[in-house]
Design a protein around this nucleic acid. Structure first.
Lengths: 236, 236
DNA sequence: CGTTGAATTGATAACTCTCAAGCAAGGTGG
DNA sequence: CCACCTTGCTTGAGAGTTATCAATTCAACG
């Protein structure tokens, strides 16, 4: 049996939950799913609405946003290609899911996807492991949100983004300068770190003035001195 | 087959992961587990050490603590009777687990427990659901840690604790005053909310002066005006 | 070249932390 | 039985960090 077209060339075939499936199983699962292209800013799920779909992110970056009644917002998770989105076994979505960049997702209605978890034990196992990891990540960020200074938060964030960009880009000289584009605006970085736009901006210029990073323009950032950045990420 | 003694009278038989098991299955699982009594302040797992055990909390309250290199601490989770503790599929413990009160846990070495998850699909399913819930809880608290004022945090915390106490205690008059004991010291509350002892204390007296709560002494708290407390938990 | 959204910069104020002292309750030992 | 010590809680004064409000600059784009 040939793999249905969309899966055959899927960019995340070997990383997403589907990596646990044989080609045959994948073809079955694919029958209940569909792809969706998303524009920057488009929302996949609204907090409070029925949790109707879940799926895998193929390309782009999504954000998970928690909001209080009076409008304060906090980005509680970022979703990268290969990551799972949505919540099985939950009636209502707790968080709003929105595309930060153009994105492509592979979606399944929740109920049939839950049945697929029944049939494909290895996939459920992997979902459990991913969820446990996500829980650790979330808890680690609780420490940072509550106890880190603005300087530490921004430095740590840049290191995270550099690592993520560094794996895909050329690794070049390990200690050499690394330049990459942030997929987030200052406002979105502020929403991730629990700060305001102004504070993020001030900390960035402070790092620039110190010669730790450079800001070539646009969304680009250059890490000039990784060790110094690391030091600022750890100590107040 | 009779149920082995410890499980037959287990206080959380119907709430813990074991609730998915038949008496026979439970007897098998029990063969690889053992009970442990813990004193207040005793630590079950240290962050960074091998993640050797997991299990169910039978009585008492545990805390999960994240700490930064320089000693700042944050309580990233509280564990109540019936809750699962520990992390399957993870080599090293990420967080330190310590008893806040006298406690009793039912422990399993990690490897055999993982095998038990293989054999008992319903238990693995329930663990997945619990983990998804825990993830939602953690993300919700990220919003609160990053965006709430000290007043909102303390009011919200008291409501949480009141709800937890209220379910077990008499429900009495739904709107009437409710008195209960906090299982945490001020310092621990500060660690949960991302504040300092002094700030927690000041907010408590502020609520007391406003007539919203009363502090009869010791760890006791009385909710005098639940609606007012709710209002302060939501607006700055 | 004007418009728009994002980013930067500045001045000010508010909130929470830090440091310090005092107080209450409970346990210990003389 | 009472001084003494420990632990946890409260309160105060002052400092520091970050938020808020307000202008300006910058970059992209029609």
């Amino acid at each position: 049996m040939e793999l249905a077209e969309p899966c055959a060339h899927c960019a995340v075939r070997d990383r997403a939950l589907c990596s646990t499936l044989s080609d045959d199983e994948l073809a079955q699962l694919n029958a209940i799913g569909h792809r969706r292209e998303m524009e920057r800013g488009e929302t996949l799920l609204w907090a409070g609405d029925d949790s109707v779909v879940c799926g895998n992110l193929i390309s782009g970056v999504l954000k998970l946003v928690a909001a209080s009644a009076d409008g304060r917002e906090q980005i509680v998770g970022l979703v990268y290609p290969g990551d799972f989105v949505g919540q099985p076994y939950v009636e209502k979505a707790e968080f709003t899911v929105t595309a930060l960049t153009e994105a492509e997702v592979c979606l399944f209605p929740r109920a049939p996807f839950e049945r697929a978890l029944d049939d494909h034990h290895a996939m459920e196992r992997l979902l459990l492991q991913r969820t446990l990891q996500a829980l650790n990540t979330a808890r680690g960020r609780m420490l940072s949100l509550a106890r880190s200074s603005a300087q530490e938060k921004v430095a740590g964030f840049l290191l995270d983004m550099a690592e993520r960009a560094g794996t895909s880009a050329c690794r070049a000289v390990p200690d050499g300068p690394l330049t990459f584009d942030l997929p987030l605006t200052r406002g979105q970085i502020a929403d991730v770190l629990g700060l305001t736009i102004e504070t993020v901006s001030r900390q960035m210029t402070r790092l620039k003035v110190a010669g730790v990073i450079a800001l070539p323009g646009g969304r680009a950032v250059t890490i000039c001195d990784r060790d110094a950045l690391q030091a600022r990420a750890e100590a107040a």
